[in-house]
Design a protein around this nucleic acid. Structure first.
Lengths: 220, 220, 220, 220
DNA sequence: TATGAATGAGCATTCATTCAT
DNA sequence: GATGAATGAATGCTCATTCAT
């Protein structure tokens, strides 16, 4: 029978590291880089401020680690997505559903992204991790679009990157701006009905666009 | 005979007020609420920190004033927009162009909105100004959509608010996230070609959607 | 009858400035730049730490101000010295006595100089004040030496700067190293007898040297 | 069969001790006691901070060890000096040359001495090592002076200790204050010409003084 | 002997804000 | 209306040191 530790969480390097990162993720997503407080992170991580510097060097170093953690999580999650099993239009629906659900369930992620853009992408650029892989999800989308073109379902001239950005932006905006949209327009997109209604519109738009005949077509 | 002022261009109450507000707008949009510094605002406004408290009471009071100023500007600008002169689909194009251009030319505006959402809309809710008017632009859109329905051009079941949010989000996302999109996907939507290409896609989607037959239709 | 101030030393800008400088001089001379503590200076100056930054910008800024103050004091004191009234050899004696007495009575001055040399003269070089005037005392010495040459009392080939440095160094060393000399050699040069004895030796050396026939002479 | 060491060149107690001392000597001489950093010493010694405490107990303990090491080195070096082989005046010249060269080539030594005096000799006094031997060099000087008196070359009333302090101070000052002298007077005594010139003056003074007739003599 | 993990007190500095004129 | 002086509570960070293995 092992003796109980005199203190609950001592000398657990990896655990301390992880708890700091988790606490930092929480603080940075809720207060931003400038608004987050070192002592609040340390307290939430059940450690002291010094350990934060021991493991991450500086507030900005910790922020970058949080950013990298998010990116790694995203990449892992995206890699688990399999669009090859379903029909092209269902692949688009599945892709959209996956992205939008994730965004909706992790609004803090958007705060980090917004913070990064507030700082003109400085920290994203400062880390080599972000340059390593080009998002695999765009490749999946490209494949799904090609399959739709092959079956004659989709138009031929769709730019996969623009399409992805548009799709992502649809999910992004209603979550990122949920409070101001509610305040200015009186509609809360985090609630079921509003969210389902606009999501249906978005899917209609995306799939309707893919089924349009190629070329500048109707928009002109 | 008037006595010469002890200080040359001083004692200009309204000017000082305005210069503080302009400087604050600049600082809050580039650094956020937490990141902006009182003394930097005072220095940029060519006055001293004390005046800032004299006129706006607190940092947060000044921040709300900046927010209100933005809102007033937006409302004025939107009221000058006239969609009645052109065909329904052109009205949609004009509306989109107006909104998207404004967003692209005022990215700082987005930072304020993002900051507001970071704070869960606290300051927007704290000011009575924002509750006074429901955005007139949604009404304009509603009218344009009705005209399109009347001519048989547009489907009947379009929710104007959702449509507006979707349209706005399209312009918002590529500007608000311009740095991370560039870093992660390698495309800079502030440059002409990328921007024109995705804008064409967005217009295709919006107008294509409006021309679809009513009902759950194609998306199912 | 003026009302007594509710607090002893309030709103006295120049006084606060001066008290901070005095306290800083004391702390820097007794603890060095690295060893001095901001809060100790503020407490000794009967103000708060913030004022220190208000007036001097940083710890280093305050340190430079202390250095400059010392330099200004020295220059003023040296300017009051008049060597023209007495015979050449008495002028040397007066000069030596003035310098040595000042050093003995202001050992803290030496700590500042030592600290500066520890930092390779970084702060002295960073301030423009020190470059403005070449020490007037060397000029006085040069004149006294010339007068001695004219009367035939002194040799002709004496380098005034080297002579000044030698004279200054004599006083400097026994004060600057007073504690280690006491510990290692068992003689305390801050006490009267030891000090008078070595001072007499120094004067003998200096004047003896001046009276030597010119040239490499006896030393070779 | 001996098991391979888990760490290749580790478990070298004496080596670690020595590397720590060397690194500490470097750091204390360049930054002073207050300015030196434990972690910088550990890093430079290629070990970790804990070992420093293991061997030397505390920062101050390590500082005292550095001081003692210097003292031991000095004593060894001085003991190797032999003044008996040459004429009295040459003995003085040799002694001066030895001391001055050593000081010039080890300016860090002076920083330690200055630091000790800044602390009023606290650490020198705290260690028993420094009390053990009275500097043998003063004895050598005393002998050389006596030999000069015997030959009629030197005056009779020279205090050996004062003479030694004066000689040492001449070399000390131009090295210890080299940066401020350069900044204030524009002469760099670490460069050959300036150094040779003042050294000749110093020798002239010292030997000239020894050859003066005894008594208060010329200085009065 | 050696070392990574942990710590609390202290560090210089900055913050938004108020006082007194 | 305008301003320089003043302040206390943080803030991010570093320090020398000790713990546990």
């Amino acid at each position: 029978m092992s003796q109980p530790a005199p203190h609950p969480v001592k000398r657990d390097a990896e655990g301390t590291r992880r708890r700091i990162l988790a606490a930092a993720t929480d603080q940075f997503t809720t207060h931003g880089l400038a608004g987050a407080r070192i002592d609040a992170i340390a307290r939430a991580a059940n450690t002291n401020e010094r350990m934060l510097y021991y493991y991450y060097g500086s507030k900005e170093g910790l922020y970058v680690a949080v950013l990298e953690g998010m990116y790694v999580d995203d990449t892992h999650r995206e890699e688990r997505l399999d669009l090859t099993e379903c029909a092209p239009s269902d692949a688009i629906r599945l892709l959209a559903h996956t992205i939008w659900t994730h965004v909706r369930e992790n609004p803090g992620w958007l705060c980090l992204i917004n913070n990064e853009n507030l700082h003109e992408g400085r920290y994203v650029k400062s880390s080599s991790k972000f340059r390593e892989t080009i998002s695999p999800i765009v490749e999946m989308l490209r494949t799904a679009l090609a399959r739709g073109v092959a079956t004659g379902e989709f138009r031929q001239d769709v730019d996969a990157l623009d399409f992805y950005v548009t799709l992502a932006g649809m999910g992004y905006y209603i979550v990122s701006s949920r409070f101001t949209l509610d305040a200015f327009l009186g509609r809360n997109y985090m609630e079921q009905p509003a969210q389902e209604s606009i999501t249906a519109m978005h899917l209609d738009m995306l799939l309707g666009y893919l089924r349009l005949p190629s070329g500048p077509g109707v928009a002109s």
